[in-house]
Design a protein around this nucleic acid. Sequence first.
DNA 1: CATCTGCGTAACGAGTTTGTGACAGTTTGA
DNA 2: TCAAACTGTCACAAACTCGTTACGCAGATG
Lengths: 230, 230
Amino acid sequence: MAQDERPVVLLVEDEPAQREVLAYNLDAEGFRVIAADNGEDALLLVEEEGPDIIILDWMMPKLSGIEVCRQLKMRPETRRIPIIMLSARAEEVDRIRGLETGADDYVIKPYSVLELMARARAQLRRVRPSTAGVVLEWGDIRLDPETHRVYRADKVLKLGPTEFRLLTALIEKPGRVWSRDQLLDRVWGRDIYVDTRTVDVHVGRLRKSLMAEGGDDPLRTVRGAGYALG
Amino acid sequence: MAQDERPVVLLVEDEPAQREVLAYNLDAEGFRVIAADNGEDALLLVEEEGPDIIILDWMMPKLSGIEVCRQLKMRPETRRIPIIMLSARAEEVDRIRGLETGADDYVIKPYSVLELMARARAQLRRVRPSTAGVVLEWGDIRLDPETHRVYRADKVLKLGPTEFRLLTALIEKPGRVWSRDQLLDRVWGRDIYVDTRTVDVHVGRLRKSLMAEGGDDPLRTVRGAGYALG
DNA sequence: CATCTGCGTAACGAGTTTGTGACAGTTTGA
DNA sequence: TCAAACTGTCACAAACTCGTTACGCAGATG
């Protein structure tokens, strides 16, 4: 799942004027917009960019919106991306067809831009509910206490329980140096007896995990004092 | 909670084999099915049961589907019930005629059962948009608290009561990690004494049910912390 | 330079946590 | 009433983590 700040919308519309208006509004709405003016390019962009939602015009050169929709909804790895269809035809029959091909919603031209924005947001909420809790961040490292997930540069990292608690302790006050004893208190618990060298080992393991996908070492060793994040 | 809040479909088809197949699928799709094998009975059942949607065969003894449709669409108290017509004739002329009589949609035999189901759902959504109240969704998993039904990729899953409650708890905040104790509180009840390992077993059972029709494991085990959906 | 102290890390066995099949008791529905 | 479905517990295996130790390197000290 793309964990960029802004959700990515793929806008597929062959009419440049329409495309520009929509792109502008979607951008203002907080989406990152990528666009295509035909079905073939659209399918390619889906693979390359993995958008969070797709807005798809019905009539298009090369590959119709219906066909693009059908193909995307057949593949397991893309079927979960919400698709909103745009059409100039108002007939009820068309509406039904649109739903049949698997489109998640359907807007008839001329539409209100606000309505389309609202529907886009609704679809996005449905598939990718926002984790509204507190997220701790430092640099490109993000730690979500609620989901117990740690990201670096938008990639999910795999940490052991102690590594997770250690990082939580460090990221709460970035830059601050903690002695080994302080860390033992905070991470292991006040009354547990563990050798202070254990801290070194776990800092080492955390370093390795944080750098598993590349990137600098974000942990700072302060000789004679302890450790800090940043 | 209402025991049977399922939408009612009236299935009118004189061919027993066809009727059975459709009835089975409609049931699996979440409809309560009532059936008739001729037009006269159909009209009676509409009065007695007030179905939410009607699937109507074209050719039938006593009173043809066209005639039933026309009569229903003339009466104000029944005209709003969506009607889907089935026909063996593929000619476009028939299609138009069907729509003229007031049918809301039209399916030509041989049809894909899935297609018919999709159209039935679409019609129902159109007339009765808030039929289901809140539906909880995550990815391709859908849970309808009102009908007590769980779908994955549009297929109905069979869950035990505890599995259902467990999934409900998890899907309310997708991604969030719940400790075993929290889950015991939420799913089993605050003051019940149950071993925490029971949670593991039910998570295992839920996993099995969710993956019965294929698909990834949507449940995440967070070692030392608990479980999460996604 | 020789020595000393602190730190990084591979390796390892012990201990913990989790997954799961089996089972007996209970509930549900026909 | 009976059969089927469901529940909670247990036991065992597998997977995973933990803390410790030992050894080598780097900086500091003199």
